[in-house]
Simulated assay, not measured.
Amino acid sequence: MQRFLYILLIFVTFGCSKKISDADLKQLNGYWEIENVTFSDGSTKTYNVNTTVDYIEIDGFEGYRKKVKPKFDGTYDTSNDAEFFTIEKKNDSFVMYYQNNLSEWSESLTQLSQTNFAVIGENNSTYHYRRYEPINIQK
């Protein structure tokens, strides 16, 4: 019964959400933290605390994503590592294609707003992200 309700919730959520347009893609720019992952078997893992966040920057249909570590003063530690991607429109949806020296993979963008986005990976798991709010502790 719980699985049925979960599947129904997914259909209602995605059935009522508006289609993503080319102009909406710019909303991906910025800092994002993973909220939860729904695995292909229906189980969910929730992330209450994140020690790293993703920084995404796109220009048109190309961009990159990198992991950054927030600091308490509102700044970030980062490395020079980045995952570059291209975005392709396929049947009224968008697919992000990643490729590096070791592998290549894709994620289908299923939801996008100023505060949230979700992608489905090749393993049929859905990754839900929320806009990251920086920590800023004043002395």
Rank of each mutant, 00 (worst) to 15 (best):
Q138K: 10
L109H: 12
D54K: 15
N36L: 07
T44R: 14
T110L: 15
N100E: 05
T52Q: 11
N29L: 05
E83D: 07
V68M: 11
K19N: 14
G121Y: 10
K19P: 14
L28Y: 02
R131H: 08
L112G: 08
E107W: 01
I120V: 13
W105T: 13
T126A: 11
V53F: 06
I20M: 01
T38W: 04
D73E: 08
E122K: 01
A118H: 01
E104P: 12
D92I: 03
D81S: 12
T86C: 07
S43M: 06
V37C: 06
N91Y: 06
S79C: 03
K89N: 13
N91I: 02
E62W: 01
A82P: 07
I137Y: 07
K71W: 04
N124P: 02
Y76L: 09
T126C: 13
Q114I: 06
V68I: 15
T38M: 08
D24T: 05
G15M: 11
I120D: 00
D81G: 04
E88V: 10
Y127S: 08
A23R: 10
K45H: 14
T51W: 11
N48C: 02
K139C: 00
E104M: 14
V95F: 04
S21P: 08
L25I: 03
F117P: 00
E88H: 07
R130S: 05
F84H: 08
E122R: 02
I135H: 08
G121P: 00
D24M: 03
K66Q: 11
Q111R: 14
Y97E: 03
E35L: 15
S40M: 09
S108N: 10
D22T: 05
Q27S: 02
L109M: 13
N50V: 08
S106A: 10
T126K: 14
H128F: 11
F84G: 01
E88M: 06
D81P: 02
N50L: 15
E57Q: 05
K90D: 11
F72P: 01
F84Q: 05
T46E: 14
N50S: 15
G74D: 03
Y98N: 00
T115W: 03
G42N: 11
D77G: 10
K69C: 07
A23S: 12
L109Y: 15
T52W: 13
F61V: 02
L102Q: 15
I58D: 07
G63K: 00
V49T: 10
Y47N: 03
E133L: 06
T75V: 13
K26Q: 10
S43R: 09
S108R: 12
S43T: 15
E104W: 12
D73K: 02
D59P: 02
H128A: 01
N80W: 13
Q114G: 10
D54I: 12
F84K: 11
N29W: 03
T126N: 09
N80M: 15
K66F: 01
G15N: 04
R131N: 04
T52K: 09
L25F: 01
F72H: 05
G121Q: 09
T75R: 04
R131A: 04
K67S: 13
F72C: 03
D41K: 14
R131C: 02
V49R: 09
N80V: 08
I120T: 12
